Amino acid sequence: MMYLAVCGAAAFGALARHLTGLVATRLTGRSTLGTLLANVLGALLAGCIAGASLAWGLPSTWHVVVGTGFLGAYTTFSSWMVEAAAYLRDDEPIKMLLHVMGSTVLGTAAAALGLVTVVTLG
């Protein structure tokens, strides 16, 4: 049953990722913003799940289904790396560094915010 739950959550995560990318591209004309938004929101939610596990004893099944299933499909490391490589291909190393470092810093801050907020509320 756990496998089905993870698969179902992953299907919703993939759809949510696709929609996030469509909306971001429509609003800004840049697909890289969709990747950034998905990864930062995913990190925030992962931090919240980790915080709920610590503060409220959230069952590990939730962590697996939501964290691995939904967020695993929603966040997108491979797209992020392909975008970084494309900046290098286009001879834009500064944009590549900003893309990689900005995503790393924002994602880490979002995960920490989610974790600390939920633990503090708990």
Rank of each mutant, 00 (worst) to 15 (best):
L45K: 04
L115I: 09
P59K: 13
F12T: 15
A43G: 08
R26A: 14
T25Q: 05
H99S: 03
E83R: 03
G72I: 08
P59I: 05
V119F: 11
A16Y: 09
L36F: 02
L15G: 03
C48N: 07
I49N: 03
A38D: 03
A85L: 14
D90Y: 05
L41F: 09
L19F: 10
L22W: 02
H18C: 08
A84D: 06
L115K: 07
W62I: 08
S60C: 05
S79M: 06
L113I: 12
L54H: 09
M96K: 08
T117L: 15
V40L: 03
M1I: 11
T68S: 06
A109P: 13
Y87L: 00
W80C: 08
P93V: 08
D91W: 11
V23A: 01
C7Y: 13
R26W: 13
L41K: 03
H18P: 05
T75P: 00
T20Y: 00
L45D: 03
A24I: 01
R89K: 15
T28K: 00
P93Y: 05
V118Q: 07
G34S: 05
F77S: 07
I94L: 03
G57S: 05
G69T: 04
L58P: 05
T117I: 13
Y3A: 15
W56M: 09
A5L: 15
L27F: 00
C48L: 15
V65L: 10
G42A: 11
P59M: 09
G8P: 12
E83D: 04
V82K: 10
Y74L: 05
A52N: 07
V105M: 08
F12N: 12
A9Q: 13
V23Y: 00
S60K: 14
C48W: 10
A73Y: 05
G107E: 02
L71R: 06
L45T: 04
S53E: 08
Y87W: 10
A46M: 14
F12M: 15
V6D: 11
A50Q: 13
T104Q: 07
L36N: 00
G72V: 12
T68I: 06
M96D: 11
Y74S: 02
G57F: 12
W56P: 04
W80I: 09
G122W: 14
Y3S: 14
A43L: 07
A11F: 15
G29N: 03
R17P: 04
M96N: 07
H18I: 04
H18G: 10
P59C: 03
L45F: 11
L36M: 09
A109H: 13
L88N: 12
V6L: 14
L54E: 10
G47R: 06
A38C: 07
T28D: 02
V105H: 06
V119W: 13
D91Q: 15
T68P: 03
P93E: 08
S53K: 12
R26Q: 15
G47D: 05
T35Q: 01
M1Y: 12
A43Q: 06
V6F: 11
G102N: 04
T120I: 06
A110F: 08
T35Y: 00
T75V: 01
